[in-house]
Write a protein that binds this DNA or RNA. Sequence first.
DNA 1: GCAAAAGTGTTGAAGCTACACCCATGC
DNA 2: GCATGGGTGTAGCTTCAACACTTTTGC
Lengths: 234, 234
Amino acid sequence: MSETRPYNPYVSIDCVVFGFDGKNLKVLLIKRHIDENTGEYNDVKLPGSIIYMDEDLDEAATRVLAELTGLKNIPLSQFYSFGNPLRTSNPRDILWLERTMKTKIERIVTIGYVALIKINRKITLNSKNTSAEWYDVDEVQNMNLAMDHNLIVQKGLDHIKHWLTVEPHMMFKLLPHKFTLSQLRLLYDEINRKKSDVRNFQKKINQWHNLVVLDEFEKGVPHRAGRLYKYQKK
Amino acid sequence: MSETRPYNPYVSIDCVVFGFDGKNLKVLLIKRHIDENTGEYNDVKLPGSIIYMDEDLDEAATRVLAELTGLKNIPLSQFYSFGNPLRTSNPRDILWLERTMKTKIERIVTIGYVALIKINRKITLNSKNTSAEWYDVDEVQNMNLAMDHNLIVQKGLDHIKHWLTVEPHMMFKLLPHKFTLSQLRLLYDEINRKKSDVRNFQKKINQWHNLVVLDEFEKGVPHRAGRLYKYQKK
DNA sequence: GCAAAAGTGTTGAAGCTACACCCATGC
DNA sequence: GCATGGGTGTAGCTTCAACACTTTTGC
């Protein structure tokens, strides 16, 4: 983070960070303020930034996420790269980029990374002018994100949906340490965009051998309390 | 392709083009000659090049492949991006890149694309100093390709292996117009790196409904001739 | 006639889907 | 006591793996 480390103004990282609030899948977005002398403009974008000249992509993703949100030790997975030359051609985007990066921007190819975190992780911001918030993934589809970030979120979603079949354990990263089977199923259904049969779902996950049954139950619910489970890495 | 169209020397495309000769999976590589005054050096690399400043990635992939091999109308799929800052740090690579691109090279992030073609397609080269050849994928693992191209080939392989389950029809792009079920099975097994049971395999592919049985048989084989099939898009 | 690959069915195991009722809790 | 979601088993169907012998052809 030294001030003299040169940027590569042609390549950036964008992080699609997903969370789950027990009901909806959420994505972490950062509010962006543009003062177009002074047309004023507020919108919302993915946490992302250009990379340093001598920086590996995975490394850059980790750094960018930490710098913009304070989130550390988050495994990030590259999923797709976006290089439409018009993706940063909106004057608003150019203005914002050049002010923020303090460098001339021509055209940026961005590498998309995806991460799954527990939604109650503390987010800290590096600037008073910004704020990060969780947005419903469904809402985001109808919002107008900065640059091509709608597309990036969509591709990120496709990517984690694909994980459901290939590595379903990734879901546990989105759940609290202790969770009920309903929470697990709702999350699964939310990502998969279809309702599972309750009994069949429980049969399926009982074969995963990574769930530990706890002697605890959820509290304060206006119905029979669900049993709590935790995930145990094998 | 005008001479004045400026390059973006920070982003490149590399194409992993696969073919199948009836027995082995092959990858298309380009011989590269370096004269290091005159240490002489010959090695082999993927068809790839830096992109133009105003060019979309998919567009660049199509152009680069056409320019370097004459292959047109080839669907290319992006599969992964490679950005280790040391990937082009070998002096040999720098020398070659700067001579070929006629521009100063600092560090290149490359976007990997994969394509599947029939192995008898005509390859034409744009220069007398280069030549393109098909290499056994297995051999390539033990060769020392330029830059990080061994890694890129490996990731490309993983990608098409994954296609077997998700979109198995892609295999037909690698086969001749008319083919036997053995050829199809050998290709499947080659990509999947395991032997299928003959009968089970035929049952599986009979459910695809994209195979048309022909009234023709292969010729000149020293055993019972296999029936020919063709692929019919639905 | 022999070497080499083509072609062809059945069985058992595992996994997937569909489906309905009683239970515990908060209000 | 009622509304809400928790928790539980079975039966039919589909899918997948394992397995061996006869046919055709070139030489």
